[in-house]
Design a protein around this nucleic acid. Structure first.
Length: 600
RNA sequence: CGGGAUGUGGCGCAGCUUGGUAGCGCACCUGCUUUGGGAGCAGGGGGCCGCAGGUUCGAAUCCUGUCAUCCCGACCA
């Protein structure tokens, strides 16, 4: 490809709307252009990257025995009615009506359709297991699309669905997919960490996410959207998404500030944990924090947790089996308890408000607690005698850096940010049951399919690579997914030796199957170098001063130095570089603690 | 949806307070000079100032409405 023919207009300045590096660099490098909020044109360069990621995915999926197919994006709403998700998916589901006023949706995922395929095509256990996948656009009407390709309303996704006659068979496939995913991301040049996750709207019991770990250079916006907690002990290897991470608390050293039996004291204006600590010397670890949350149908619930801890709302949502929860507003608080923020407590609480207790409060002794009376707290309270002991305890807290690992029970937890590029679920019979998708088992009985599903954000993976590999000059593509392997730059198109040499090499490369762009623009050298760095070609070959003597200047994007190599040897050099190319060789970031996480 | 902000050639912005018919940089086109890290000079093209209404002799500027975009929260590959 000649640069003069390539549709890739680079920009000097960052577009105002781009906040994260991948978005900025992809726009500046001429890879993508916005069409509407969360909707992008993938220009030729971007499409090449995308196709490379796809090719790797196809290869690994096919090798692991999955079959590719294609399902419709436009689907009848009836199907979603059947699975119950027309309601559950909420506003994120893109809805439309056709000319006959029939309700339709644009698919955000394909469990419904694939389940009908299984229902119609798979009659017997003999045809199981089956794993079917597709690579196709998905539509999610995100409340707030952002970060360019990292979170669009339309995005390319690989989604696979497996069907099994038994749990153990699903378990096996889950492992096969896990390995395939590790291979895929490794081949894309990225380390990933596999973490336990919340299964969200897709549903199911067990699920894991694949995270590309990001570390953001100084002055750059944090772009890893997910917090990943992991055990500092690499032998342990525990890692989990922040919304699911469990943690054990380090032993508390807190001592009560009051003596004697439980009493009620005046605490004027103590509306927050912080104020209780500052004004009344109450140690947060001894405060029983009481919060009122409202769930879906405005069902209130009181959450009890230790004063120094935060509630992880995703955990709470799961426990309550709710779609939406929020902290009660001052008005709601008044109506429910007659009290106000800071003074809500489990003592003398109306029976209509159920209590959910976090594990952290189980062992509390001589604690401080609000009693639904303004400007008053009870001190030295204890379970049973002063406050009724909650019936059950669950894990509702947000893990913290420095907490104890729940797995090995000795290591401390660390946190890093990650971009979720893949997700695998054990769905079980969630969809097959409601959609009546059954097969004949060995003894002739009808049984619902046991299902798994496995997704990869294709465009997101590409963007994550940019997020992970870049410097202040531009993108540093991993060889495997770079739009082109190499760029050849004749420094001055007016100098015949340079052009001749560049052309000679270009032909050689092309013949050898190396994807190469010849920068034949009549631009100054500086412009070409800047653009080459910005676009991120892994290999750069310059025909310059020494062209007359038959030397070319060869440089890798991720390395500083260049070498002068005689024309005759350049092809071999390039081929060697391509073969030997490994990510992280000239790391674009220092090793962080995150790197110690067992690579998934 | 709640909170905050912004809409002016392809991109980045100024002008708006104090109304007088639109400007700068980049990009683009032509010419000359230049030619190893985003060149210089000269010339040129392109914008119903987001949209609709109103106030006014006159609106990018003031008022009302509306739409869109972006940032912070809940959602997610």
């Amino acid at each position: 490809m000649r640069m003069t023919r390539l549709l890739a207009n680079t920009l000097r300045e960052n577009p105002a709307e781009a906040e994260v590096v991948s978005h900025q660099l992809l726009v500046r490098g001429g890879y993508i252009r916005r069409v509407a909020s969360g909707i992008y044109n993938l220009l030729p360069l971007m499409w090449r990257v995308t196709r490379k990621v796809e090719a790797i995915i196809r290869d690994e999926m096919d090798q692991s025995g999955a079959q590719e197919l294609m399902m419709p994006i436009l689907q009848p709403a009836d199907l979603w009615e059947e699975s119950g998700r027309l309601k559950d998916y909420g506003k994120e589901l893109m809805r439309l009506t056709d000319r006959h006023d029939r309700a339709c949706i644009l698919a955000p995922t394909h469990e419904e359709v694939i389940t009908t395929i299984a229902r119609n095509e798979l009659q017997s256990y003999r045809s199981l297991p089956v794993n079917l996948y597709q690579i196709q656009n998905k539509y999610r009407d995100e409340i707030r699309p952002r970060f360019g390709l990292l979170r669009g309303r339309e995005f390319l996704m690989k989604d696979a669905y497996s069907f099994h006659a038994s749990e153990s068979c699903l378990d096996k496939e889950y492992d096969v997919m896990t390995q395939a995913y590790i291979n895929i991301f490794n081949r894309c040049g990225m380390e990933t960490v596999m973490v336990r996750s919340d299964s969200g709207a897709i549903g199911g019991s067990v699920s894991h996410e694949f995270m590309v770990l990001t570390r953001i250079a100084e002055g750059e916006q944090e772009s890893g959207e997910n917090e990943v907690y992991f055990c500092e002990d690499t032998n342990c290897g525990y890692a989990a998404n922040g919304d699911r991470a469990e943690a054990l608390l380090p032993p508390s050293e807190a001592r009560p500030a009051y003596e004697g039996k439980a009493t009620i004291v005046d605490t004027p204006g103590a509306t927050s944990i912080e104020l209780m600590q500052q004004k009344f010397k109450m140690h947060p670890e001894l405060i029983l924090k009481s919060l009122i949350y409202m769930a879906d149908g405005e069902k209130p619930v009181m959450v009890l947790i230790r004063g120094d801890l935060e509630v992880e709302e995703t955990k709470l949502k799961n426990v309550m089996n709710a779609n939406e929860i929020w902290m009660a507003t001052p008005e709601e608080l008044k109506e429910l308890s007659g009290s106000a923020k800071g003074f809500i407590g489990p003592v003398d609480l109306p029976d209509s408000i159920p209590i959910l207790a976090d594990e952290s409060i189980r062992e509390l002794k001589d604690f401080y607690v609000a009693i639904n009376e303004i400007d008053k707290h009870m001190v030295n309270a204890n379970w049973g005698s002063d406050v009724p002991m909650p019936q059950t305890f669950t894990d509702l807290k947000l893990a913290r850096i420095g907490d104890i690992c729940p797995e090995c029970k000795s290591g401390k937890l660390q946190m890093t940010r990650g971009i979720e590029v893949g997700n695998i679920f054990k769905l079980g019979t969630k969809y097959s049951e409601v959609m009546n998708a059954k097969f004949a088992s060995e003894n002739g009985e009808d049984k619902p399919f046991i299902m798994g599903c496995y997704g990869i954000g294709v465009t997101r993976t590409a963007a994550a690579a940019v997020e992970r590999y870049h410097d202040k000059f531009g993108i540093i593509w991993p060889m495997a997914i770079a739009p082109y392997h190499a760029v050849i730059i004749p420094v001055n198109t007016q100098v015949p030796e340079q052009m001749a040499l560049a052309q000679q090499l270009y032909d050689q490369f092309t013949k050898a199957g190396i994807e190469v762009v010849m920068d034949d623009r009549d631009e100054r050298a500086g412009v070409k170098f800047k653009d080459a760095d910005l676009i991120g070609f892994p290999i750069r070959i310059t025909a310059g001063k020494k062209a007359g003597e038959g030397f070319l200047e060869c440089k890798m994007r991720d390395q500083k130095e260049s070498k002068d190599i005689p024309v005759a040897d350049v092809l071999a050099w390039a081929q060697q570089q391509m073969q030997e190319w490994r990510p992280f060789q000239e790391a674009t970031r220092e090793k962080t603690d995150a790197d110690k996480v067992t690579s998934a």
